[in-house]
């Protein structure tokens, strides 16, 4: 019973890998053989057993090692976790959401006992057993957002809703695909998305904001986003770009299979009950090309998507330098056969 947590690294020797079961459950983001931005938001309802959508908040075999990597990032750069003063209540909302979801979905690993405001939280994989008073910051070793997100995979953006907009007023961001919380904190929805090419002109953000402003409590939504990362590195922050950027020059036809990773973000959107804020968990899943092509369908499809991607999008996602090498490698896994509809690996 329960998850077997891997001991692995996302830096230095990069020992991260997916088990065969986790390859099969990878949230492959392409439902057809091409890609363009779209408002691909759908209700966050339970998916098939064993999939990353089985539970509202997914915990997987990488949990313990990802939390160790987060602690390393925060020790190096405390600015990755920030909360403007009016966001503490939303932090408590988030703590409640994550604790109740984890305890309900994974009772063998997490338990939460509540007696009024007196809460008892046990996180067995991380060896945490804490009693605290809900709403009293002094009874936790960190603020509520930081406390619970040091125990939760993925980045978290806490948004305030006012003036018909959403404001990025708190967050913890250590596994991001190249955006800076420290720079973007305090911005509204349009401002923090300002650098994304093409999507503004297509009206994507106007429609997405309208949807998000109306997310109801108990009815979360989700979407997938993707990029690619060289080496299974979680911390691809702009802060450290000068440290990880050179990785992009190291891709050769011989090492594509284990160096190039598809990086998928499962973004979900939740209304918070006390603060009326929203939380966006941005959960990152990595899969190496060697692992991905164990599905013939995924191999064919990814080849076609990367080959036909508009240049602006390829540049924004940072693929330009190794794209040709990657396409050449993937082409050997694409026999031109048709692919079945849908995301699954067949």
């Amino acid at each position: 019973m329960g998850i077997t947590f891997r001991q692995e690294t996302f830096r230095d020797d990069f020992s991260f890998a997916n088990s065969p079961e986790h390859i099969r459950r990878f949230p492959f983001p392409f439902h057809e053989d091409s890609y363009m931005y779209a408002v691909n938001i759908e209700p966050h309802v339970a998916g098939p057993k064993g999939s990353v959508l089985e539970h509202p908040i997914d915990v997987d075999e990488h949990y313990v090692s990802e939390m160790q990597d987060r602690a390393l990032v925060l020790a190096e750069d405390p600015l990755r976790c920030q909360s403007l003063p009016h966001m503490t209540l939303a932090g408590w909302d988030l703590l409640e959401l994550l604790m109740t979801a984890k305890a309900e979905s994974y009772p063998e690993h997490f338990s939460l006992t509540r007696d009024g405001d007196r809460w008892h939280w046990v996180n067995r994989p991380l060896g945490i057993d804490d009693r605290f008073t809900f709403g009293d910051v002094a009874t936790l070793p960190y603020g509520p957002m930081e406390y619970i997100t040091r125990q939760s995979q993925g980045d978290f953006c806490l948004l305030d809703q006012r003036d018909g907009n959403l404001w990025m007023d708190a967050g913890i961001v250590t596994t991001q695909a190249d955006w800076s919380l420290d720079f973007d904190i305090g911005m509204n929805f349009f401002e923090w998305h300002a650098p994304v090419p093409l999507a503004h002109e297509k009206g994507i953000f106007t429609r997405a904001l309208k949807f998000l402003l109306n997310v109801q409590q108990g009815r979360p939504a989700r979407r997938l986003n993707w990029t690619m990362t060289i080496n299974p590195r979680l911390d691809t922050s702009p802060e450290n770009y000068h440290k990880w950027g050179p990785d992009r020059t190291t891709v050769t036809p011989e090492n594509v299979g284990h160096k190039v990773h598809l990086r998928v973000e499962l973004q979900s959107f939740w209304r918070l009950p006390r603060s009326n804020g929203l939380v966006f968990p941005i959960r990152c899943y990595l899969i190496s090309m060697d692992e991905l092509v164990t599905s013939r369908k995924w191999a064919r499809r990814l080849h076609r998507v990367i080959r036909d991607l508009p240049d602006e999008i390829a540049a924004y996602k940072g693929l330009t330098r190794y794209r040709a090498t990657l396409i050449e490698w993937l082409s050997a896994h694409d026999d031109g056969a048709p692919t079945s509809p849908g995301f699954g690996p067949d």
């Binding site: 720079f183 770009y241 950027g245």
Partner: peptide, 11 residues
């Protein structure tokens, strides 16, 4: 404004 290393990938 935001400044990002222009030659991070190849100094």
């Amino acid at each position: 404004f935001q400044g990002v290393c222009i030659n991070a990938e190849d100094p």
